[in-house]
Write a protein that binds this DNA or RNA. Structure first.
Lengths: 142, 142
DNA sequence: TTCCTTGCAAAACTTTTGCATTAAA
DNA sequence: TTTAATGCAAAAGTTTTGCAAGGAA
């Protein structure tokens, strides 16, 4: 199995450069892998996937790159509830389903949720984001 | 400053025993500290607070106790978004404000939020919980 | 050249575990 | 006395950092 990310490397390189991020080979590999589809991956999964594809990128570089991509808004870091950080390639506003049995995450489009009542932020504060995670369990099929 | 938790130790001991949890001195100290008011603490904060009050409880015991209390529903573990786990002494259904500048967390009552649109879980799954975190930033006071 | 990035190993952190000792039922 | 909990240190797991070597501007 070969990895052929449907991401335009040239365009990606431009985006990175436009933010002052030097588009190195390693960064392009990591970014195009993660951005290939809307998905959620841990650093470890990225390292494993790259290795499987014959690309060896050091752990330090993967972590540094993920933090860098997150800092510039190319990916979003999600609190997995477990121990390790998840990186989400969908940077549009959206929410999550979290399958507590299988551990997997999937996206819920923003339009699928609306609030008829929502609290005012405390004085002096502004709302800058809303994280909504819907926890799921598999139904017992009897 | 001395710690005098407004928690009835005898009643707390009963609650623990009722769940088959042996109410040891260390467990009562940790639980009464955390349950004194609705609050959010890390394991490290609990260790530090106990130490400041002259009580020395081992790290292992604090972690074990927090996991035990969480398993029995006396506290709830929250994904802090940072690295370390937060333990929330408010076990009623509720949501959170998270001050990204100060790092502090506060509660939002369940009644403060309602949904006029909410997604169906995928087939074969049931919704077992909803985590909502409203991220805040301090307004620039010009 | 000069500055930035990579990779490796080691360090830092948080949390868990093994095991002898101690406390609770 | 029997079973379970504590404390210590060491282990485990994830993420960061220091630094020499390599690559881009």
């Amino acid at each position: 199995m070969q990895i052929v990310p449907p991401v335009d490397r040239a365009r990606l390189a431009e985006s990175l450069a436009a933010r002052g991020v030097r588009p190195t080979a390693q960064r392009l590999k990591i970014a195009s892998l993660l951005l290939a589809t809307p998905q959620h991956m841990t650093a470890e999964q990225i390292i494993a996937t790259l290795k499987q594809a014959g690309t060896r990128v050091s752990k330090a570089t993967v972590y540094n790159t993920l933090n860098l991509l997150a800092a510039h808004g190319f990916v979003r870091q999600v609190s997995s509830g477990d121990e390790r950080a998840l990186f989400d390639s969908n940077t549009h506003p959206h929410y999550h389903f979290h399958d507590l049995d299988g551990g997997s995450w999937s996206d819920v489009e923003e339009s699928q949720v609306s609030f008829s009542r929502f609290p005012e932020p405390p004085p002096g504060f502004a709302v800058v984001g809303v994280d909504l995670t819907i926890r799921l369990r598999r139904l017992a099929n009897k």
